[in-house]
Nucleic acid binder design. Structure first.
Lengths: 243, 243
DNA sequence: CGCCGACTTGAATTCCTTCAAGTACGGTGG
DNA sequence: CCACCGTACTTGAAGGAATTCAAGTCGGCG
């Protein structure tokens, strides 16, 4: 167990404070957690479905997704994660991973043993509530994704994914929702929206043609937020951003 | 606040015990909760999206679903619930409901104030862990539904929904997974699988023609579990049934 | 008995996929 | 420096799975 640098966990503290007010003792407890900081390359599998994870993890830098696969090889991404996110709270209580966690860019992860995490939650009720709330918001996002994939057409699905990514990035203090670089490939967008990468490509072009977004490679500029919101049927209430 | 009959909450205790071992004090605490037992009719809305619920609820009898709607009226059911299920843990921490909760049959609900629920969780760590675990399993089911709706074809989706319903019913001690009565209409199955009721009807017929199930109205007999599992790509691991 | 909701069935249409090429670009090695 | 290669992206055309439109059946209930 390597003791990670205290500064690096600041991002996690900031993120958790969006979910519940933390005191100085809470912050100190998080920042002095015994964690193993690890660098991962894009495409690295962090957790594999069926495994029994011994650690919880927090994403410090880079982007990560969770996904499941069907027997015939279909892949469905069920969430994207941005720096500051807790990736594995559920492994505290659920013995086996029911999905894969994979880096989509190079990523820095803080790994914490389940015991260490449990002590933190037991000893610091405010941290517990913040973690609990963040897990409940995760579940809310899953519900929205069921709706997105189940009931929206391809254009709205892709637009919704873009709106959500922009909104979550902004909420996490990672920059303006108007311009950003997408970390994921069009194939990964396809796997998240239940489409083919070919069709995602077409939908992105249509969004551009309609003047809603402008693209340069993976740089996205949301030109017309109001139009995007309407087309995507995007209402950020499900992100529960206002505490 | 009417004090509910102690016996009725037995089902909730039994359900929670699937998630974490409870002691006599834990059971007593649940059974003596100050709850309001209420009868609801099929189609009653229990919680409406956007509302600020003041209560948590437990389903004692009947069946309930949660759903979301798109701007153009598309409806997506994101979960079904069976007797014993906690319906509203998330409302403890999330101010506004991000989805609707609706009875699909006549249903008996135990309503508990958020304060009462919070005291229970604060005072009884085993209950807290059971509730926490049950919420995490809920989230796991949402993930599976994203996969179901996003990456399986219509036949597998419907078959998967049937397998899950049978497995959860059995796990909750509500009877054999081989024969059961579906509480939901084909339109509700459609709204849960991201299909039209017309297509659900065709898929059910195909399942029958292939000798996988036999139907009489809403009575379903799963004739060939192995075939169903294979066709539906159903692996119950995501239900985390073995504690 | 007649009405309504749920279910059933067929035919036409549509959205998305599949198949098939081909382009753009960053990295690697000669 | 440039040829080579792999990955991501782009575009068109054909095909197919699920929807939409249209009708009709069945069963329960007032």
């Amino acid at each position: 167990m390597i003791i990670g640098e205290i500064e690096t966990l600041q991002r996690v503290v900031t993120n958790l404070e969006r979910f519940h007010t933390l005191g100085a003792a809470d912050r100190a407890a998080i920042e002095t957690l015994r964690v193993r900081i690890q660098q991962h390359s894009a495409h690295d599998m962090l957790v594999r479905e069926g495994n029994r994870p011994e650690c919880c993890s927090m994403l410090l830098e880079g982007y990560v997704c969770r996904h499941k696969v069907t027997a015939d090889g279909g892949r469905q991404i069920v969430s994207f994660h941005i720096p500051g996110d807790l990736l594995d709270v559920q492994h505290l209580e659920l013995e086996r991973a029911d999905h894969n966690v994979q880096a989509i860019t190079d990523a820095t992860i803080a790994w914490i043993s389940k015991g260490e995490m449990q002590s933190l939650l037991d000893g610091y009720p405010s941290v517990r509530r913040a973690v609990w709330r963040s897990a409940l918001v995760d579940a809310s996002i899953f519900r929205e994704w069921v709706l997105n994939v189940g009931r929206r057409d391809a254009l709205a699905r892709v637009a919704h994914m873009l709106c959500e990514f922009a909104a979550r990035r902004e909420a996490a203090g990672l920059g303006s929702p108007d311009r950003f670089e997408l970390p994921m490939t069009q194939e990964q967008i396809a796997d998240a929206t239940g489409l083919t990468s070919i069709h995602v490509n077409r939908m992105l072009r249509i969004l551009g043609q309609r003047g809603l977004i402008a693209r340069d490679k993976r740089d996205v500029h949301i030109v017309n937020w109001d139009g995007m919101r309407r087309l995507a049927d995007f209402d950020p209430a499900y992100l529960h951003l206002a505490a």
